[in-house]
Simulated scan of single mutants.
Amino acid sequence: MLSSRDNMESEKSDISENCDPNSVPSAEKTAQPTEELDCENAKKPNKAEIKTIDECMETELGKVNEERVDFKVVFNKSKYDITFGWDKTIKELKLHLEDIIGVVQNAQKIMIKGMAKDEMTLRTAGIISGCKVMVVGSKMNDILAVTSVKQQFAADEKSLGSTSTKEPLCEQKIHRKVLDKGVPPDAMPGILGTKEPLPPVPLSGMLNKHGGKVRLTFKLELDQVWVGTKERTEKLALTSIKGITSEPIKGHEQYHIMALQLGPTDASRYWIYWVPAQYLDAIKEAILDKWQLF
């Protein structure tokens, strides 16, 4: 009689003899083709995808490494703490400020030792940590109100122009009585054929229609220009000035006669004499340029 151990060994032997070694693939033989198939079918990134990934990484690294500057923006007597990229442009800063101060980008003027140009970076414009930056501009409702007034003024001017004289201003009797006194001894030097930004000090040494001394102080952070005489200082809102008339003084073309239009008629003009020619465009830009887009 066979022992149970002998029976088990006999069964194992029978199974080994009856089993076809080629009928059941081993795990080792089965896994290999699967691994090879996965490698062949795996999606390889194309050059465009690799480039996109690289650009994204560069963009993210740029954001991390971007040099930023902290400063204050002053608008309508309110102050705002701003942190912005030092190498971003003034135009980008204006867009950033739209929602903060409620003034559209094209109606903003950034003042840093004069008006900063859109293409300048904050660095080249002179913005440094802790400095104050003045923003001049008006909100859309104010712009629309002034535009309506200016259109009415233009219509009134057209009507007046049909009856007004073509005689040069400097030859009209009303102006001759001031001009015949000659250039004031304390007049600021006039320069012909050049344009300069507004100086950091008031424009002085000019005369009004009574022959009295007059000076102009531009308070752009308040949207005002102060017209000062010996007797008093008149603080005019820039939006109250509907237009500017000017003309070179014959024989002294480096100076101009200039009038601030405060109403619809000739009687509403505030005349100023011996305005240096190089500042005329800057004066017009400071007062009127914000409305030209509209």
Rank of each mutant, 00 (worst) to 15 (best):
M1R: 10
L2H: 09
S3K: 09
S3C: 09
S4D: 11
R5I: 14
D6T: 12
D6P: 02
N7T: 11
N18E: 13
C19A: 13
D20R: 12
P21M: 03
S26Y: 01
K29H: 13
T30I: 10
P33D: 05
E40C: 10
A48M: 05
T52K: 15
I53P: 03
D54N: 13
K63Q: 10
V64E: 12
E66P: 11
R68E: 07
V69C: 10
K77Y: 05
F84E: 10
G85R: 04
E92M: 07
E98H: 01
I100G: 06
I101M: 08
G102W: 06
Q108F: 00
K109D: 11
K109H: 14
I110Y: 01
K113D: 10
M115C: 15
K117C: 03
D118M: 00
E119M: 09
T121D: 03
T121V: 02
L122E: 06
R123A: 09
R123H: 10
T124W: 00
A125L: 04
M134D: 10
M140S: 11
D142A: 12
L144S: 12
E157S: 14
E157D: 11
S159T: 09
S164K: 07
S164W: 00
R176H: 02
K181Y: 07
G182Y: 03
V183F: 03
P185K: 07
P189I: 01
G193H: 05
E196Q: 15
E196N: 12
P197Q: 01
P197G: 00
L198D: 08
L198M: 02
S204M: 07
S204Y: 04
S204T: 14
M206D: 08
L207T: 08
N208M: 05
N208I: 02
K209D: 10
R215T: 15
F218L: 12
L220I: 06
E221I: 06
L222T: 10
L222K: 15
E234Y: 06
T245S: 08
E247L: 00
P248A: 09
G251K: 04
G251Y: 00
E253D: 14
E253T: 11
Y255R: 10
H256R: 15
I257N: 13
I257Q: 13
Q261L: 05
G263L: 01
D266H: 15
W274L: 04
V275L: 13
Y279F: 15
D281T: 02
A282P: 09
E285S: 11
D289F: 00
F294T: 12
